[in-house]
Design a protein around this nucleic acid. Structure first.
Lengths: 101, 101
DNA sequence: TCGATAGTTCGATATTTTTCGAACTTTGGC
DNA sequence: GCCAAAGTTCGAAAAATATCGAACTATCGA
């Protein structure tokens, strides 16, 4: 499996972040990762086909919002909270509550 | 997105704001309104035709980011700083410095 | 090794946005 | 009243995104 492209923290572009978050499904994914922590793609797919879900996770990944790691046959997605906070302080707070809020 | 209406502060939708800000030209408009205050459309058009500029101002207006008032034959656009801050505290700080920063 | 599970990639189509010119509206000045 | 300036609206064409099925890859367990 090829390595998904992951921008470094300082490469994260605000336009890309905004575009990624302008879709309701993607915004919801980010919120759930924020409140519930790491999740598989499957755990967050609604009734969409896998290819659509995969597409949206890719947009989030390439925008720099999430990181994906393999865990056996499944891929776990996590919000890049610290990287985003460092690059755009306060942005995540507008979008997603912290788990302990 | 419909006709040139101005959403009330509490009607501003995060998705719409993100979409509006995901375009580089619109992001630049918002930044300039933030730093330089109220501006006419003309003052911020690059070398684009008027209809394109008008379109982008409309997207910003309908998303709730700017307010437009007539001043003679020209229309002055202002960032709805307080409304946005009230609805999504901290968001504008990620995007646009305050004039006195 | 076979089958099932979890995702990715590809290709085609559908939908949404963007772009631009032309016609139109409104306002101010002469 | 007429003209120019500043925007808006409309319509069509171009570009970007989203959607979905099908084929593919990788991992785990029996």
């Amino acid at each position: 499996m090829r390595h998904a492209r992951l921008p470094a923290s300082e490469e994260i572009a605000l336009e890309d972040v905004f575009h990624a978050l302008s879709d309701p499904f993607r915004l919801e994914i980010v919120r759930r990762l924020a409140t519930e922590g790491e999740q598989s793609c499957q755990a967050l797919e609604g009734d969409r086909p896998k290819s659509s879900v995969s597409h949206h996770f890719r947009v989030l990944r390439e925008a720099g919002l999430i990181r994906t790691r393999n865990e056996g046959a499944t891929r776990m997605n996590a919000l890049r909270r610290d990287d985003i906070e460092q690059r755009f302080p306060g942005l995540l707070a507008c979008v997603a509550p912290k788990p302990d809020d």
